[in-house]
Design a protein around this nucleic acid. Structure first.
Lengths: 196, 196
DNA sequence: ATAGCCGGAATGAATGTTCATTCCAATCTC
DNA sequence: GAGATTGGAATGAACATTCATTCCGGCTAT
């Protein structure tokens, strides 16, 4: 009796639904994706989705949190908190870009659903929590007089805006992410941060 | 004989539909906005929309082009092509931010619908045309050795990404757009462009 | 001048479709 | 065989679009 396999299947059915939803929500958006479409992409019946998730909104929120935790883990999991600031920034940039390249749907999904009205309190709280990490990094840079004297949020806006746009252009084929280009992008972002 | 008034009314009805669609599409997205909702917001019957526009998709495309032309006119209408590069950049930044602040729905709508699959060839062509202006500016900066040596598109990615994000944060109340902050943002963007 | 007609613009109820969600007979699992 | 799980048909709400009808300003006939 494949007992382990059994539990795997049960677990994997839930995962399969989340995986299919990730692809579809990333590509077509929340309102543009029908639940039965998610079901058939996941290879399950439409009703099965409602055994694992309360509603379409519940599904998108659980997915949001799964993906947010995954990126965060990827970046912070082995973050070199003791390294020099520029090296820390390099690590951050590299890890984020690495995630976006290896998990494009996840990146696009998170970006697309950022602060949407159907996200619930738990999802919003998770978003704030992650932002707080970035703000602490900025505060450290400012305290060390490395970053220019500007609003804390400005740095996030500039760097995150650039990264997101970079990925979108790359993903749509309008830009090729060579190592050279990525190094240039990282430098440009750092120079936007650094004190004049 | 209120001949002029008659034509005004007819013209303004079409405009009212576009105006209502702009607000709703900007706020709720394309798939999240029902046509009858646009109709009632415009104060017309649902059927009337189909007198002026072929379909929901036709409406969103005509709106996209109207708004794209409007921003472009706002920025390029009196652009100081003869000014020094940094002054040109300042003008560009100021005008874009001014548009985003005075026409938030327009800015948000354009950003939200950027490269969406329901945009038609005419809308896409207009998008490319506008991008070409920006690329020419970048090429000039590079030829003059003012901009760092990097992919042309990188500059658009960084600057435009930052501006879009800035506006989104401001619009959602997470950031206040003071003159100081905007000046800091402009400087940060310029430093991301400028040769090291 | 005015009653009555005309044609295009406007309407919103009706239509057929698609959606999120529910339900239950069939199928698993132990 | 009891209990849980499943797929997918069924359901009702909401959607984009259509169309038979109404409305209204100007024109004609008298």
């Amino acid at each position: 009796m494949p007992d382990a396999a059994l539990h795997d299947e049960a677990g994997s059915k839930r995962e399969r639904i989340l995986d299919a939803a990730l692809e579809l929500f990333a590509e077509r958006g929340y309102h543009g994706t029908a639940v039965p479409l998610v079901a058939s992409a996941a290879g399950v019946g439409a009703g099965t989705i409602y055994r694992y998730f309360e509603s379409k909104q519940g599904l998108v929120n659980e997915l949001f949190r799964r993906e947010k935790r995954a990126v965060t883990g990827h970046v912070l999991g082995s973050f070199p908190f003791a390294a020099p600031p520029r090296a820390q920034f390099h690590y951050f940039f590299e890890r984020i870009v690495d995630w976006a390249r290896t998990h494009p749907s996840s990146f696009q999904f998170l970006e697309h659903h950022h602060h949407q009205p159907y996200l619930d309190d738990a999802s919003r709280a998770l978003e704030s929590e992650v932002t707080e990490y970035a703000l602490n990094f900025v505060r450290m840079l400012k305290a060390a007089k490395i970053a220019r004297d500007a609003d804390d949020h400005l740095f996030l806006v500039v760097v995150w805006g650039a990264i997101v746009r970079l990925m979108r252009e790359a993903w749509s084929g309008r830009l090729e992410l060579t190592d050279t280009l990525l190094a240039q992008a990282e430098d440009a972002c750092w120079d936007a941060i650094e004190a004049g």
